[in-house]
Nucleic acid binder design. Structure first.
Length: 252
DNA sequence: AACCGTATCAACCGCGTCGTG
DNA sequence: TCACGACGCGGTTGATACGGT
C-alpha cells in the first residue's frame, strides 16, 4: 500500500466519530476523532473502506458489463460510475478498470491506423440536461505509446436535410449515423467497433420507429422507438441506459 | 525454499471547483 | 472582484500478495 496503513484502532476512532458527528466537516474530523491523520486521509478511509454497505470481493459479470457501458458514456468519471454501482467505490471501479478493462481496450488498439482521419455524423455530445446532440465530427486517430485517442472536434451541426441515396427496406431513406450509445456495445468497448459503426444507417418510419441497419457488425442493436418532433435532440434514461425520445425527425 | 515479475488495491498527491468573507 | 480555505475527484504510487520458475 502507498502510505501508512490504517490500524483497527484508527478505524474504530474514525467510525465512532462519524457516527457521532456525521459525514462532512472533514477538516474537523481528525481533531474530533483524536486521529493523527489529515482530513483527506480520513475522508478517503471512510468513503473507500469504512462506510456501511460497501461491497467487497470480485466484480460480477453484470457489474463489469455495467462499468463498460458507463465508462463509454462518462469516461474516467469514476465517482459518477460508482454512484450507479451500489456498494462499489470510485476507487474500486478505477482500480478494476486500470487492472483489467483498460487492457482489453489496449489490446484492440492495433485495429485502427495511426493518424487516420475519418469524418462522420455522430450522436455524441451529452450535457448536464441529459441531452445528446447530433453533430458531424472529424476523428483524428493518434497513437501514443500506450493507446489510441481520437481528438475529435465537432466541425458542424448535423444536417439531416441531406439524405444519402440509400434505400431502406420500407422504401424510406437511410441516413448514415454513428450511435455512441451504451446499448450498442454489448461487448467490451474497443476501437474496432468504433470504426465499424461508421457503416450504420438509420431510417425513421412514419410510425415513429427508427430502423437501424448495420454493415459488418455481428451484434444486434435493439429497435429504437422515437417520436416525431422538431428537435434534433434525444435524451438518455440513465437508469435504463436507453434512448428516451425525439430525434432529428424534422429532417425527413 | 528463494527469487523474480506481475497484479492488486489502499493510500497519497495535486488540482479544479465551490462557497464564503 | 478577489483571495482563501475546504471539498471532492482523478492520477499515481508503492506495499503486499500471488504465481511461475
Amino acid at each position: 500500500m502507498g502510505g501508512v496503513a490504517w490500524t483497527e484502532e484508527e478505524d474504530r476512532l474514525l467510525r465512532e466519530c462519524i457516527q457521532r458527528y456525521g459525514e462532512g466537516k472533514w477538516h474537523r474530523i481528525p481533531l474530533l476523532a483524536g486521529l493523527n491523520r489529515c482530513r483527506k486521509s480520513c475522508r478517503l478511509r471512510w468513503f473507500n473502506y469504512l462506510r456501511p454497505n460497501i461491497k467487497r470481493g470480485s466484480f460480477t459479470n453484470e457489474e463489469v458489463e455495467h462499468i463498460i457501458k458507463l465508462h463509454k458514456l462518462y469516461g474516467n468519471r469514476w465517482s459518477l460510475i460508482a454512484s450507479r454501482l451500489p456498494g462499489r467505490t470510485a476507487n474500486d471501479v478505477k482500480n478494476y478498470w486500470n487492472c483489467h478493462l483498460s487492457k482489453r481496450l489496449l489490446n484492440n488498439a492495433h485495429l485502427i491506423e495511426p493518424n487516420e482521419t475519418t469524418k462522420n455524423t455522430t450522436i455524441i455530445a451529452q450535457d448536464k440536461n441529459n441531452t445528446i446532440e447530433c453533430e458531424s465530427y472529424e476523428y483524428n486517430w493518434k497513437r501514443s505509446s500506450e493507446t489510441i485517442q481520437n481528438n475529435n472536434n465537432p466541425i458542424e451541426t448535423i444536417s439531416m436535410h441531406d439524405p444519402k441515396p440509400n434505400q431502406a427496406s420500407n422504401g424510406g431513406t437511410l441516413l448514415p449515423i454513428e450511435i455512441m450509445s451504451p446499448f450498442v456495445r454489448d461487448e467490451a468497448y474497443n476501437d474496432q467497433m468504433v470504426a465499424q459503426e461508421y457503416n450504420k444507417y438509420a431510417c425513421i418510419e412514419e410510425n415513429g420507429t427508427m430502423e437501424v441497419l448495420q454493415r459488418d457488425l455481428d451484434f444486434e442493436l435493439e429497435e429504437i422507438k422515437i417520436t416525431t418532433g422538431e428537435h434534433s435532440k434525444c435524451k438518455w434514461d440513465f437508469d435504463e441506459l436507453a434512448f428516451d425520445l425525439e430525434l432529428w425527425t424534422n429532417s425527413l
